[in-house]
Design a binder for these strands. Structure first.
Length: 279
DNA sequence: AGACAGACCTGTGAGC
DNA sequence: TGCTCACAGGTCTGTC
């Protein structure tokens, strides 16, 4: 479900409820997510949240250091929404719904509740420095940061024979480009999703980098994309679905040339493109 | 190194 | 109504 704009929307929703507040306890109703929820998550109990931020699609909730200064406990919660996860704000006493696996309960009785039907999500703990974490250390640049550009894509793609769509969805190359926005960005840049990554010019990668930036930042402004079930922390949908140009539009006319949009499975994922506009 | 398939799960909608 | 099948927004792991 969530790609980078949906994760960013979720983070902005929980941040004001968590930062500066003290966590009373972590309630784990079902620990079997993608990996078993480790006992370290309970290190959060009794501690104040110092800050919340995002790296790729991982949300990091950093705890204020303990007065004892025990370095081994410096760090915080690591949350990934997987394919179907969401967080919502509620009261600690509210009855849990189906698939409400974990609560972050605050001392003020508010609660950030993690729901994930498919349980592909992650709820874990990171130790300082966060960049040493196994899941975070091999990640490529953030697409909205200054070190992401067409030159970076061009350099990284030399000699690569796989499809460009798989290439831009590879988190070691650039993070946060999921299945929806990969199709959208390639359409905007006029590049066929099956084209070999190593056979695209620097100029075209420049256009692609701009398209990735553009589509992700517009989607964040709209609160993400709701196709089936994405909700922000208040239960509202995202409004970017109305602006999608090709995703889930197979058979409908291309907005640029009117030719029917095609669907093709690339890297085991549905891909949408205009066979006339994208080469 | 990199390309690819398989794995993890539940829910939904289409077709019979 | 109920069965089966295809498909769904992610990404790690193992094999070649």
């Amino acid at each position: 479900m969530p790609e980078l704009p949906e994760v960013e929307t979720t983070l902005r929703g929980i941040e004001p409820f968590l930062t500066g507040h003290t966590i009373r306890e972590i309630v784990v109703r079902n620990a079997s997510l993608r990996w078993a929820v480790p006992p370290e998550v309970h290190l959060a109990a009794g501690r104040r949240v110092e800050s919340c931020w995002r790296r790729a699609k991982y949300m990091l909730v950093e705890m204020a250091p303990l007065r004892t200064g025990r370095h081994s406990q410096a760090g915080g919660l690591l949350i990934h929404l997987g394919m179907s996860g969401s967080l919502r704000i509620c009261d600690a006493g509210d009855a849990p719904r189906k698939h409400d696996h974990i609560d972050i309960v605050l001392e003020n009785n508010r609660c950030v509740r993690f729901n994930d039907p498919r349980r592909f999500g992650v709820f874990s703990w990171w130790h300082r420095p966060f960049s040493d974490h196994k899941l975070l250390k091999n990640l490529g640049p953030e697409p909205l940061s200054a070190d992401f550009c067409g030159r970076h894509l061009w350099n990284a793609s030399r000699g690569r024979k796989g499809a460009v769509k798989n290439f831009i969805m590879d988190g070691k190359i650039v993070v946060g480009v999921g299945n929806i926005y990969a199709s959208e960005a390639l359409f905007m840049a006029g590049i066929h999703p099956s084209r070999q990554a190593g056979r695209i010019s620097a100029v075209r990668y420049q256009a692609l980098a701009c398209a990735i930036r553009d589509v992700l930042s517009r989607a964040i402004r709209r609160g993400g994309t709701t196709l089936r079930d994405f909700q922000d922390t208040d239960g509202n949908p995202g409004y970017f679905a109305q602006e999608l140009l090709v995703y889930e539009r197979a058979g409908l006319p291309c907005f640029q040339c009117q030719a029917p949009v095609s669907r093709k499975v690339i890297g085991q994922r549905s891909s949408y493109f205009c066979p006339r506009c994208q080469r």
